[in-house]
């Protein structure tokens, strides 16, 4: 467990390097986390994915899989890889302030 200052708040990270407490997250934090993963500007499409992921986490207790984002949030797989390149599932969970995703799909 480590902590760092992000967007003026002290935030704890777990041993996987993901946010330890989803409630520490806010939109300014998301913007800084996005920079860390190489996303310059969070667009409306990014926010759609992030907001769905946050509410799905509240409901189900885990970050959504890419399949769930496709089926339940209606964001095509191609778009997920374009919005969050290379490691979409991990980047989405990271920027959304959720723990490391464990889903296989």
């Amino acid at each position: 467990m480590t902590s760092r200052e992000i967007a003026g708040k002290t935030i704890e990270f777990d041993e996987d390097g993901f946010l330890a407490n989803p409630q520490d997250w806010d939109k300014d934090v998301a913007q800084e986390l996005a920079h860390e993963v190489g996303i310059d500007e969070l667009t409306a499409s990014h926010w759609q994915v992030i907001e769905f992921s946050r509410s799905d986490f509240d409901e189900r207790g885990e970050a959504p899989t890419l399949r769930r984002l496709k089926v339940a949030a209606g964001v095509p797989t191609k778009d997920l890889y374009e919005l969050f390149p290379k490691k979409p599932a991990k980047k989405i969970a990271y920027v959304s302030g959720l723990g490391k995703p464990h889903g296989c799909i």
Binding site: T65, R67, R68, T77, K78, Y81, I105
Partner: peptide, 17 residues
């Protein structure tokens, strides 16, 4: 477990490159 059927799975894979 929310696994897709084979055709959908193939589509996910090709969409991902």
């Amino acid at each position: 477990l929310e696994f897709p059927e084979i055709p959908e799975f193939l589509e996910m894979i090709t969409d991902a490159g």
